[in-house]
């Protein structure tokens, strides 16, 4: 499952990528809750290179999931600016994909049909469409499960299928909202390695939100550390280590200690436990 096949994927040639740059500037988001305005995100500035893998960590309530929903366009009510390759983001679009924490595969469709969902509104000839589907199933290692229904898959397989769906229409940016949050610890480590391989093959810009600092460091070129209430970027950590990575690398361990120190700087009852625990987040 973790073999590293030669780099060959639906979207080849990572080095040549020129598109998929995300520029977030002066982004703020407020909710009205019970008549009171609540600031969820406050003055976020972040610039992501094409093909980069950016991890976002932070305690509950720091607005990291909201940030992804804004980037993807499921939520369009914000101040500031989000640009993808110099085009302002307004609403959802096929060039931006999202993988949810719950896989959200349609339970009434087979895995292959679920992947096809992403291609419905792209003008592709039938045979080409079939090929794209089978290529992406192969990419996530589910070639034999195209005819299975989601309930027949394990949690890790379902999440991989969701990733295949999200990549099938070759989005320039893929947002991942705690994609591995619902998996058990062992499966999680396996799918992390899978995700690393998929990212290297597909070459898509990926932005992943997670609670797990190890995961953020293992995958991310950079790790964005956020602080809560209101959600702000506390720090951005460069992980200067080539992919594929070795979990045992001393650099990763040193950075982990730094980030944990950052996250627990102001001890709050919910910080320490939630940072590394691979369970479901609250809210």
């Amino acid at each position: 499952m973790t073999d590293h096949r030669p780099l060959r994927g639906p979207a080849t040639d990572k080095a040549a990528r020129r598109t998929g740059a995300v520029r977030i500037s002066g982004l703020s988001k407020r909710y009205a809750m019970g008549g009171k305005a609540m600031t969820v995100l406050d003055d976020i500035n972040l610039s992501i290179r094409p093909g980069e893998f950016v991890s976002i960590v932070g305690p509950s309530g720091c607005g990291k999931s909201t940030l992804l929903r804004l980037i993807v366009g499921l939520d369009t009510d914000y101040d500031g600016e989000i640009r993808l390759d110099d085009t302002r983001v307004a609403g959802t679009g096929l060039e931006r994909g999202l993988v949810f924490q719950d896989h959200r595969l349609f339970p009434w469709m087979t895995v292959a049909k679920n992947v096809e969902v992403a291609l419905l509104n792209q003008k592709l000839p039938r045979d080409r469409r079939e090929r794209v589907i089978s290529e992406h199933l192969a990419l996530v290692g589910l070639s034999d499960f195209g005819d299975a229904y989601p309930h027949q898959l394990s949690g890790g397989m379902a999440q991989r299928a969701a990733i295949a769906r999200a990549l099938a229409n070759e989005p320039k940016v893929l947002a991942l909202d705690e994609p591995l949050g619902a998996l058990d610890a062992l499966t999680r480590v396996k799918v992390q390695a899978e995700l690393q391989r998929i990212w290297m093959e597909a070459g898509t810009t990926m932005i992943m939100v997670t609670h797990d600092v190890d995961e953020a460091l293992f995958l991310g070129d950079r790790v964005v550390v956020m602080s809560p209430r209101p959600g702000r970027i506390a720090r951005i950590v460069d992980v200067d280590l080539p992919h594929p990575r070795d979990r045992a690398s001393p650099l990763l361990h040193r950075l982990k200690d730094e980030i944990l120190a950052e996250l627990t700087r102001e001890p709050r009852e919910d910080d320490g436990t939630l940072v590394t625990f691979p369970g479901r987040p609250r809210g």
Partner: peptide, 26 residues
């Protein structure tokens, strides 16, 4: 949850009806 997936992939009204509403009501 499923309606959001439809929005992500730019479903038309008829697509949402056929692929989300109808099967989930089945």
């Amino acid at each position: 949850r499923y309606a959001e997936v439809g929005r992500l992939y730019g479903f038309t009204r008829s697509q949402s009806l056929r692929m989300i509403a109808w099967p989930s009501a089945l």
